[in-house]
Design a protein around this nucleic acid. Sequence first.
DNA 1: GAGCACTGC
Length: 695
Amino acid sequence: MAQFWKPGTERPPLLDDDDGGILLYSASSSSSGYGYVSIEKQRQRLPVFKYRTAILYLVETHATTIVVGETGSGKTTQIPQFLKEAGWADGGRVIACTQPRRLAVQAVASRVAEEMGVKLGEEVGYTIRFEDLTDRDSTRIKFLTDGVLLREMMEDPLLTKYSVIMVDEAHERSISTDVLLGLLKKIQRRRPELRLIISSATIEAKSMAAFFHTSKKRRGLKGEDCVPKTEPAILSVEGRGFNVQIFYIEEPVSDYIQAAVSTVMSIHDQEPMGDILVFLTGQDDIDAAVRLLTEEAQNNRKSSSGLVVLPLYSGLSRADQDLVFSPIPRGKRKVVISTNIAETSLTLEGVSYVVDSGFSKQRFYNPISNIENLVVAPISKASARQRAGRAGRVRPGKCYRLYSEEYFVKEMSAEGIPEMQRSNLVSCVIQLKALGIDNILGFDWPASPSPEAMIRALEVLYSLGVLDDDAKLTSPAGFQVAEIPLDPMVSKMILASNQLGCSEEIITIAAILSIQSIWISVRGQQKDLDEAKLRFAAAEGDHVTFLNVYKGFLRSGKSPKWCNKNFVNYQAMRKVVEIREQLKRIAQRIGIVLKSCESDMQVVRKAVTAGFFANACNLEAFSHNGMYKTIRSSQEVYIHPSSVLFRVNPKWVIYNSLVSTDRQYMRNVISIDPSWLIEAAPHYYQHHHPNSIPH
DNA sequence: GAGCACTGC
């Protein structure tokens, strides 16, 4: 193993400018790392502190300031405070700082409240879905997810209460960040006094600056000094962290799971103590690697006995996820084998070694087939750096990349493709429409999606009857659908349930469909889960099965015990209840009457059809293997093995989503009567497929 | 016979 590696010791001379040496403490993560030092001293030690004057000057004089700073520079916690101290929150104005994730919003907000010595929810507050810890009158610094800020724009399109909006982690390029940036650019034209701060990673800074550089003259006040420069300022702030030494593989490997396992073993044999974090692509890979490592430990007792191997992915129960944070016996070494969840969402302290497979699962969207796919794809240099940085949070670390240096330098792309260009855009388009953006095709995005994807989104919205012939929101349906924070097809289903008298049931179904899974996935207990599922299974399909589970959950008094017994994920059910409450409030506000259809499941199936008619499929006449074809495009699809209708194969079904592996699998399936399709969407089926549906 | 990660009035 030893000669397998080409130590990158003599750092980088040639390549990749700023790789290798990265990272830091997270300034916001905890105060314990600083020991007895006072909060004020801690603040002053952060790299960003030296730039206080510069930042305030740039924000004063420029409409947009781009701050390039690595993790641990302190920019997220400090910049809002600098702005507040400089008076940007005077006169009732508010400083906003957005994050892509809820947890980050909460963590940063409480850190800032602590530093300022104020109670969270007063001068410093935060808003995330389901939780508003702000005070209308007293909150001056507000942290929020970018999704929440987008929603706020529906009430107040110019975001008038904010004097400065800081968009953090903009380099992650999530859909909501990108949409937000596009809209903020428009707002700037109407509100020259608004200041934007975009916090971005190194390489993106220039293209971000180009995006915000408008040559357009602002209509505006005369006195030149009131009008900030339109050209964005760029400021770099160094991070604070420990060096991470990078090692590459000499020859490409064919089996990265095996390579990862041997690398872990050789680190364990040869390197001093310190936890190991391995990045693989998904549950399958991870379970396989865990198995291999455990086997190694048995065969080779001497060297592997000190390993504690733990998987980490979002599908695990909370308890299993928490295991990776729990302390292990002295003298043992923790090995966490993880998906991308450990790249940005979860931070493991104490990791000294990172093993990077170079791959992750990524979403891709094909607007022609209108199908989103999940595929294993090479990561970007930016991701590789982020992964490496995970080894240097508390002391210098090492990162072992399971690909060659040449590959990294020559073939790996600098950044990933923005999510916007890999996704279905229906939700995004309806949101823009609701904000009065009529010309979607001409919208100025930080990264334009393909025209095909936009046209497809417009088509789908038109077929749902939420856009009219002029691509304007219909009234009331279009406006109602835009109000509901769900996929427009689900929202349409809710609207239909109002007429059909089953809104109580449909809202439950909508809430369940909007979380990943209500079932516990326990390795090795698949059979038990299947049996548990049978207790709830409904002949009509998965949607009705969900209703049975929800009823059982309520009847148990929302009992965690009941959940465990039935292989139902308790955390997931609590979330369902929460989402359901929110949907109920919104439904009532937009004029939907809450009504139960009791046991009449036919109306429930009709309501599902009203939203998802485009996903209708017909069982192939002489199919022995359960092959269906979509009515829309005659695509070959199969019922997913997790569905209660697997092997039942009703003649006509509607699916909620497709999962593509070796085949296209329909997830969450319900049986329908084909005549309902024409009832629900005459325009769609009579024009397109006059012969395929029996009348 | 099988599941990447986030997120939302």
